[in-house]
Design a protein around this nucleic acid. Structure first.
Lengths: 234, 234
DNA sequence: TAGTGGTCTAGACCACGGT
DNA sequence: CCGTGGTCTAGACCACTAG
């Protein structure tokens, strides 16, 4: 439901509710979302606000309207993959696919003068009992920011979820360089590649809600990953 | 003035009036356009309609609003969109170098059943009399959408500026796949590379203010380009 | 304080699509 | 015919900016 005294405008709240339902698959590709009249009755707000919320989703490319018929979902699988660089665990969980993480490295190192946890994981999906790894993530996390974070088992737990739930730190922004490179033998083994091929990696930093840098990150994308961007040219 | 019985919606009519005044320089870069109250008195329509017209201009990137101050014109000679999320803008600005385009291919082809212009350009900067090319971009543009676009010389003119000024079409959104690949000999020659190396290309579509796909695009980034991505994880 | 844009209400009439 | 989205009116209160 909406919080009418909340700090956020109603149309933003409604937009987020609808967007969540699209991304997690409650409204699927090709579905109609509820009509404006139904939403207006359900949330007790005027059509103006409903339309403004849907306007936003249209701009984001998540839905389109057809006069006389309704508003359709046009959510394409990969579109939000990198764009919502919010952690792959979160992504798969929302898609209701079983995600699998394997910890490859986990050690305390000194990075830029601070004790840090270095965590490397292969990430993939389980499919017919076999795990296909599709990305390799390296994270470097300061122990000053995240005391005792080395105690958690991140083959089971989502890193970003832990940040939020246990430390009250919300990853909100990423600045990443996109770098093409040639696969190494080690990477080929992990991602089950047969040849040396060009791959893509994202290298950069993740920032919290307060603007503090909280993570140094490197993500290597396997060849099956469609790394899609949606860019507004404003 | 507005035609209240006209076939076109009032907000479209008003948008066109304001856009015309911006493009022909009546309202200049940095100017305030008349406030919503003034427009409402002048045209005898409600603020809803005024705001909807201005919304369109904001989406087209012609104006931006500042709460408490007004609505400013920001009609910039926009650079190429990929540079907007690429960090190439900074690359040029920091070095204060002159940008240079060379047309490599320009031909009429049939693409998805339609006559189209295929345009390939190498883009770079001039430095001590020499040009260093750093990207190669291909565009495919329908002649139905852009009649006679093949008449322009895009080594001199900005493609997107031409779309806006001559056709009234505003590139507003891009959907791109980021693909790593290995350089070919032809590319190595154009970009002055000495070895085969992994490069990055962006492949996708550009959409107009109305959501229509207006361009098929492919941009190859040279190794000097830092393709930087800033992502909000909301 | 006056003027601006930001959000929202409570209606209205219309055009389109399918039954 | 009814339900859908498209446009528009006539207000209201709020938050921000500047003199």
């Amino acid at each position: 439901m909406l919080n009418k005294n909340g700090s956020k405008p109603l149309y933003i709240q409604l937009k987020n509710i609808l967007r969540e339902k699209i991304i997690n698959g409650y409204y699927k590709e090709g579905d109609l979302i509820p009509s404006e009249t139904k939403l207006l009755n359900k949330y007790n707000i005027t059509r103006f606000t409903i339309r403004k919320a849907i306007d936003q989703l249209v701009n984001e490319g998540l839905v389109y309207r057809v006069h006389g018929k309704g508003t359709y979902v046009c959510f394409k699988e990969a579109k939000y993959f990198l764009w919502n660089f919010g952690g792959i665990t979160d992504y798969f969980r929302k898609r209701k696919e079983k995600e699998h993480s394997k910890v490859l490295e986990k050690e305390i190192i000194t990075f830029e003068g601070e004790k840090c946890l270095k965590l490397t994981r292969a990430r993939g999906v389980e499919k017919e009992g076999k795990v296909n790894y599709i990305t390799i993530d390296k994270s470097i996390l300061s122990l000053k920011t995240f005391p005792e974070i080395d105690k958690y088992d991140f083959s089971e737990e989502s890193l970003y979820n832990t940040m939020r739930k246990k430390y009250g730190i919300y990853p909100t922004r990423a600045e990443l360089g996109m770098v093409p490179f040639l696969s190494t033998e080690k990477i080929e083994n992990i991602l089950s590649l047969e040849n040396k091929i060009p791959l893509l990696k994202a290298v950069g930093k993740v920032f919290s809600q307060t603007g503090q840098a909280i993570e140094d990150v490197e993500v290597i994308y396997g060849p099956k990953v469609i790394c899609k961007l949606v860019s507004n040219m404003r």
